[in-house]
Every structure is written in structure tokens, then in C-alpha cells.
Amino acid sequence: MTTNKFACRLSSGLKILLILLSIAMLLLISSCKPKETPKEERYVVLSPEVAEIMAALDLTDKIVGLTAECTYPSEFASIPKVGKFGTIRKEAMLKLEPTVVFAAGLEQEAIAEELQKLNIKVVSVYPQSLEEMYAAITNIGAITGTEQRAKALNEELKASIAAIQKKAAKLAKPKVYLEIYRNPLMSVSDDSFVGTILETAGGDNIFPTLEREYARVKPEDVINAAPDIIICYSRDSIKNIVSRKGWQDIPAIKNGYIYTHKEINPDLILRAGPRITLGLNRLYDLYAAWEKDQRP
């Protein structure tokens, strides 16, 4: 009887052991299950400069949504737009079922936070110097699985920028004033991306330090700084700039070195993307033309 009892106990113990084992086995099996094939990546890009970087990394066919400002390269025309830079239509974007959303800084920080609440992966990219741009390209490469192309793109950019810097070092640095707004008057500091670009091309930004990257400046400070070259993106006409009260003695105005978006496309120097080499070269050409005229 006792043996019987013992056998009974043994068998129930065995049963429990068996159940436990099978659970462990199931867990093991499930963990060994081959990984799900990755879902097709669908990117929504809200920032024009990130869009340009992604196009350079051959990712255009994975982009399913853009903002209205993303106009370069021209293939972007056929990709649906989910709003403007500062006003994103959230539903239109969610409908596209993005796997990753690439956002910029500034106004888009709030949008990025909201999207994260909805469990959508958001990557914020807002480079403010060339170094940060290289890092951003590497980062985008890592996220999209295009590390090699990102590395190649960075090397290519670094080489051309080094060449420009070499030329630029020989320039007699012209003093440059970049106007982004007229009323109120606003310019850029060296902490902004475009500020570093003005300097990299061989110029000397007249407002190296401002309390913000883009800040109000006083007209009298512009007059006192006596810039040699004015780049005006405030949509004011050259005729009007020339007739501003008290500006007539500024060398750039006296000698006619005023350039607007017609002479140098703002996107080339404001966007931290692959076209920055074009922008730097264009700036260098403007500076060099000024320097040539200074020689007796």
C-alpha cells in the first residue's frame, strides 16, 4: 500500500515536472522562432534638410510623406505632403502608417513629443554645425540601414569642404551681414548653422555672438560694423536697402555688394544637407569677387 502511495506521489510529481518542462520548452521554441521578416520601412520626413540627406542616401522610394517645404530633389513632387513645416496635419501623417518620423528642432519639437505618445518612433535631427551635420548623416544611416552610403557621403562632403576651406584661408576676410528679417531687423550668430557657413567660406560674420542663433539686431549696430558684403534674405529689394536712412556709407552699399535670394539660393546655405558644398562654393565666389575688386 505504501509503495502504491509512493508511486502515486511520484507520478503526480512527475506530472508537475513534465508540465514545467514543457512550458520551458515552449518558451525556448518560441524564442528560437525565426524573426519576423522586417516590415517594409515607411518614412515620413518633416524637415527639408533631412529629406535632402535621405535622398542622397538613396532612400527616396522609402519616403511616404513630406512637408510642403521639401522641394528638393524634384522627385519629391510626387510624394504626398502632410502639411507645412510648422503645421503638420497629424491625421494625414498617421494614415501613411510611418515606421519612423524624422522631425527637426524648433516648432517641430512639440509635434515630436505628441507622436511619441502615440508610440511612433520619432527621430529629431537639427544640426547646427558641420560636425553635427556629419553626425546626423551617420545617425540617419544607422537608423535606415544605409551605414555604408552615409559613410561615403560624409567622406565626400568632408573632402569638398576641406578643399573650400583651403581656398578660403587665403581670402582677405570680408565682413558679412546676413539679414533674415527686415521688420524687426534680424540676423544670425555664429552659433547658427548658416553663421558657421558664412565663416567656413572665408567671411567674417559681423554678429558673431548674439543672445540667440537668430536674433534681433539694431540698425545702428549694422551701420557701425560697416559690412563689406550684405546678403539679404528679408525679401526687401536692393533699391530699398540702398535708400535706408543712414545706410549709405556702409561699404557694401556704397560699392554695390548686396546679394539676395536671386544671387544665392537660401536653401543652399540655410539647410544642413548635402547641397551645402554648392552653397559654400557660391559664397566663396562672392567673397572672391569682392576681394578681386579690392586689389589696386
Binding site: 510648422g86 535708400s243 535706408r244
Partner: peptide, 28 residues
């Protein structure tokens, strides 16, 4: 303001007062 977020500076300049207008000679 909502439609032209990029121009917030211009809009705020008008809504909060801006005496720093630059005049051209004709405007003056």
C-alpha cells in the same frame, strides 16, 4: 499666426509693439 508660424517674429513685432522700424528715405 497659425498658418505662418515661420513669420512669428513679424507677427509678434506687430502685436507687442516694435518702434525699431528702419525707414527708407522715401518712407521717412
Amino acid at each position: 499666426m497659425y498658418l505662418f508660424l515661420k513669420d512669428t517674429v513679424v507677427i509678434l513685432g506687430t502685436l507687442m509693439g516694435n518702434l525699431g522700424r528702419i525707414f527708407t528715405i522715401g518712407e521717412y
